[in-house]
């Protein structure tokens, strides 16, 4: 399989902090979207920083389009579109000026395409970015990320701050983008409904460790939550339990094979689950 992005045992530690990325490994196949999920401070932005070389990893391998990217690999970065959460661009610029700057940086900068996106996103080209709302700055960042014909989009909370209507439109644009089998997206997000809509793979990170990487379909269709009583729980085969969480009178147990669970534990209520619930169980729950 060809990968747009591959991380192998990436480690990163901050001086004077307990937090560390601990042997992060995952791979994003070409033509797919990977949702990168985790609670605040889980290590999503640090991982993205290591990928984009804004942070220096201690060890491990990060390959983009099959090649480790260092500072001199300008051509690799020509093919990457980036969106950070918050203000990506200085607010003294207008969108027109930003386009002029980007045209002097990206070889493949497509000014007409950029203006198309501005129109589509209802962004005024001559308005100072200082006057843009948060949603507008995010839309602008997405327009910039797409206007140089990248092959890989790295999006750090790119849909946060957007209203549901605009998020829908942006997600459609991302889906159009990955219709080309050479295009891929790594999308970190708290909004798991977005990931359920567009992601092919979902990777969960918690306290600097990857706790699960799965295809979304597998998570949605095969993973399940058993609603157990204490008595039910004690009868479960430990090998079936991915994670569990005790509530007042119930124990929610995450399992990875719904058919097997329904057959094996017919008396236990077994529900399909959501990415949100899986994240909660993995992050707040316990493992056997």
């Amino acid at each position: 399989m060809n990968y747009a992005l591959k991380l192998q045992e990436v480690c990163k530690q901050y001086k004077g902090s307990d937090f560390a990325l601990d042997n992060i490994s995952f791979a994003l196949p070409k033509g797919t979207v990977m949702g990168f999920v985790g609670e605040n401070g889980a290590g999503k932005t640090t991982t993205i920083g290591c990928i984009l070389n804004t942070l220096k990893k201690e060890h491990g391998i990060i390959e983009i389009f099959g090649k480790e990217m260092n500072d001199d690999d300008v051509s690799v970065r020509e093919d990457i579109g980036v969106v950070y959460d918050g203000d990506n661009f200085p607010n003294y610029l207008t969108a027109i000026q930003l386009s002029n700057i980007m045209a002097g940086i990206y070889k493949q900068w497509d000014t007409p395409l950029f203006y198309e996106y501005l129109e589509k996103f209802h962004l005024k080209p001559s308005q100072k970015l200082a006057k843009y709302s948060k949603g507008m700055t995010m839309k602008l960042a997405i327009a910039v990320a797409l206007s140089h014909h990248p092959k890989l989009l790295v999006l750090d909370e790119a849909t946060s701050g957007l209203d549901p209507v605009m998020r829908e439109e942006i997600l459609d644009i991302f889906l159009d983008f990955v219709e080309n089998e050479n295009h891929s997206i790594l999308l970190s997000s708290h909004i798991t409904s977005d990931l359920e809509r567009i992601a092919d793979y979902i990777t969960f990170i918690h306290r600097g460790k990857i706790i699960l990487t799965e295809t979304k379909d597998n998570l949605i269709y095969n993973y399940a939550v058993l609603r157990c009583t204490e008595k039910n729980f004690s009868t479960l085969d430990k090998g079936d339990i991915v994670a569990y969480r005790k509530k007042d009178y119930q124990i929610d147990v995450l399992v990875s094979d719904i058919k097997k669970a329904r057959k094996k534990y017919p008396k236990v209520v077994t529900d399909h689950t959501t990415v949100d619930e899986i994240m909660l169980l993995l992050v707040k729950g316990e493992t056997v």
């Binding site: 984009l52 070389n53 804004t54 300008v74 970065r77 990457i80 940086i105 990206y106």
Partner: peptide, 8 residues
């Protein structure tokens, strides 16, 4: 952001 642009 500048560091992620195609410039050294």
């Amino acid at each position: 952001y500048k560091i992620s642009l195609p410039v050294k």
